[in-house]
Design a protein around this nucleic acid. Structure first.
Lengths: 236, 236
DNA sequence: AAAATTAGCTGATGAATGTCATGTTTTAAC
DNA sequence: GTTAAAACATGACATTCATCAGCTAATTTT
């Protein structure tokens, strides 16, 4: 029963003010809290499977999650990441389509709440602010997806890897020593960039040689962010 | 004043039942009709520019439109197409971000209505069905974008071109003789697939040699759809 | 602790595909 | 109708990058 005491409550959830749920009033938070379920995942464990139906949305309370599709040759393609306060599974719920991606925990003790469909739909209908949060989140994501499409279609692997490192930095932040606060395998990096694991390994060494980054195992330190930005060929 | 007589009315618009606007009642259609504007575009003319702000959404009444971003080397990347009944510009409006893509007419006499922001927002708030149409449209588009990302990251050019032809068929239909009902330059095809114009030219000849398609100028006839599907390596 | 598995690394090689050059055809402009 | 411009086509070549093989280091399992 050790996990029992860590079972989170929406009322005291520190991620609330960062998430879509910040649009809810106390009464509505109470309602979510009563209807939600919560699960704990170790690194690598799958939260939901691409192709299945979902009956609610998942809210990350603790830990990190990757969203990925399995492509033509059974290869994983990482589409997106989620951290505390982020929700996943909402795309499938709102489109009433099967899940377009699988989700897996990136860390041990990843804690994820599940809010059933009916609560979400009723809040969307009742609370226009909550509704607009979803419209905004979806349309923002769609814009991000379009950028990724253009980059994948036009930029070479080297630039895409540099950009991926910068995106990971923006998503998960750095500590005081400029370490990106997420640990990914070379293979996972390759599955974001859309390249082979060996190419990631070689390019990381190049970046290291050029003093753009420092690497210790899965720990990546961004030594020269303007330099990386130049490599990534990012203007805006 | 020749165009005047072709100025469309929402009340009689044949595309209404196909579009998000099918969720509106007569009174609301009337309101949209009174507030909307309408413009005519010739082939190549730009409807809106990436990076600008939008103050409403665009509804295609007649003709075809491409949505594209300009990538790193100034190269066009086509993100999506729109045909009568489709709306464009809604992503930027709902996210309150600048337009993430430009839109240009693919045919002469393309007719596009503009519905101002306030009407859209007030209908979303008033009419839950209309609201859910947008949620569904956005989340569906997001799913499509994820598929495209995985394909761009993992499939070779040959497969992507075959898949593009099949997607164009699904989007714009074929006539009785299996001609895809949209005319694109080789360069535009390249800008969907994410490849060089020369590669598209070569691969189209290969498909032609393999009796998968017939080509006459910009007219592409799909002779063997199961064959193309196999080349595209599409399962679902 | 030993064995086995997984992850990381490096070099060699070849295939896919982008680039460049050039010519031809089609379309648009005058 | 002639000229100019754009689109299409093809060959030669260069480059990027994936694949394969083999090896070492780090984890995990037994």
């Amino acid at each position: 029963m050790k996990n029992q005491k860590e079972f989170p409550s929406c009322k005291t959830c520190g991620t609330k003010h960062l998430s879509v749920f910040c649009a809810l009033n106390n009464e509505q938070v109470e309602e979510i809290d009563n209807s939600k379920g919560c699960n704990f995942y170790n690194k690598g464990q799958v939260v939901f499977h691409e192709g299945n139906r979902t009956n609610g949305i998942y809210c990350i309370n603790k830990g990190k999650v990757k969203l990925f599709q399995i492509g033509a040759e059974g290869k994983e393609q990482i589409i997106r990441f989620a951290k505390p306060g982020d929700v996943v599974g909402y795309r499938a719920l709102l489109s009433e389509e099967p899940l377009s991606a699988s989700a897996a925990a990136l860390e041990d003790d990843t804690t994820i709440c599940f809010i059933p469909r009916d609560q979400i739909f009723s809040m969307i209908t009742q609370n226009p602010n909550f509704n607009f949060k979803f419209l905004k989140m979806l349309s923002h994501e769609l814009g991000e997806a379009a950028k990724i499409i253009t980059d994948l279609a036009q930029k070479p692997v080297r630039e895409r890897l540099a950009e991926t490192l910068l995106i990971l930095k923006d998503t998960f932040d750095m500590d005081e020593e400029k370490n990106i606060q997420v640990k990914l395998s070379r293979e996972e990096l390759a599955n974001i960039v859309g390249t082979a694991t060996e190419s990631v390994i070689r390019l990381l060494s190049e970046f290291k040689k050029d003093k753009l980054i420092a690497v210790e195992g899965r720990n990546i330190k961004l030594l020269n962010i303007p330099g990386l930005t130049r490599v990534a060929n990012v203007f805006e």
